[in-house]
């Protein structure tokens, strides 16, 4: 039995494939498109168009970087508002041209810094939540590593939310939860359990539709499985009228915590 803490460690493991690896494996003819047309280009978010099993798709991934220099350049996968606005721009173009959207999520969280606040980190995330709720093309979000709070949710309002076996998704980092609730950041392992943040927990809550095996670390195989599943699901979702698609998406999130008494 793998503990939640072990899953968190696996999700953060050095050498674990990051978004660009999946983009290379899953898509053909991928063209990266830069910038938010407002402020700048955030290297923490990679966005562009490619083909998935022949079908043009928009792909938006949060990229942590692999080597140290790249990690620094990509701010370790913690996006600024311009990153979320770049994502929004690509989502809107996907809608305009009738392409489905694939989001690949791997972030400790949206960046907490002076520039991020000055440029409206909260507003940028909020705008994406509304935009995704109403987007008239299919959206599938795959959690490939860490899913850190609002910074992950900003790309996670989707028709299908899938997670890899060792991916995690939480309202706050376990370290943050431990220091706020128990005033002891050292209790992070306990917080991992208490937060119920593993893919298996969230599948049990009905927040995630599918959990993918990591094939004992054979991530090329994982990508083959993902490609087949994405191709099939995008075909099925694309057959739905836009109104039906967005209504179902709304209902899916509407029912979470909807049975309060």
């Amino acid at each position: 039995m793998t503990t939640a803490y072990e899953r968190v460690q696996a999700a953060r493991q050095k050498g674990r494939p990051t978004a660009v690896f999946y983009i290379r494996q899953i898509t053909m003819d991928f063209l990266e498109l830069h910038g938010d047309r407002r402020f700048g280009d955030d290297p923490a978010i990679v966005a562009g168009i490619g083909r998935l099993d022949g079908r043009p798709v928009t792909v938006i991934g949060i990229e942590k970087g692999v080597e140290t220099e790249e990690k620094i350049a990509r701010n370790f996968g913690s996006a600024h508002p311009e990153g979320y606005r770049k994502a929004l721009r690509q989502m809107k173009q996907a809608e305009k041209f009738g392409r489905p959207v694939l989001c690949l999520i791997d972030t400790a969280g949206a960046f907490c810094g002076i520039g991020a606040e000055e440029r409206g980190q909260g507003q940028a995330i909020a705008e994406n939540l509304m935009a995704l709720m109403g987007l008239k093309v299919p959206v599938i979000s795959v959690f490939i590593g860490e899913g850190g709070s609002g910074g992950a949710l900003a790309l996670g309002v989707a028709d299908r939310v899938w997670m890899l076996e060792n991916a995690v998704y939480s309202v706050i980092s376990p370290e943050g939860a431990a220091s706020i609730v128990w005033k002891d950041a050292g209790k992070a392992a306990d917080a991992c359990e208490a937060l119920r943040m593993t893919a298996q927990d969230l599948y049990g809550f009905g927040m995630v539709e599918r959990v993918f095996s990591e094939e004992n670390g054979d991530f090329t195989k994982v990508c083959e499985n993902l490609t087949a599943a994405l191709s099939q699901e995008f075909a099925a979702l694309s057959a739905l009228p836009a109104k039906e698609l967005t209504a179902r998406r709304y209902e899916k999130f509407r029912k979470i915590g909807g049975d309060e008494v």
């Binding site: 709720m133 949710l153 309002v157 609730v181 979470i256 915590g257 909807g258």
Partner: peptide, 19 residues
């Protein structure tokens, strides 16, 4: 978001945004 409700609280951001 209320930490003690975990993902049930985070996803309220999506739910309220939809409304």
């Amino acid at each position: 978001a209320r930490i003690q409700e975990g993902m049930f609280s985070l996803l309220q951001m999506a739910k309220t945004s939809g409304a």
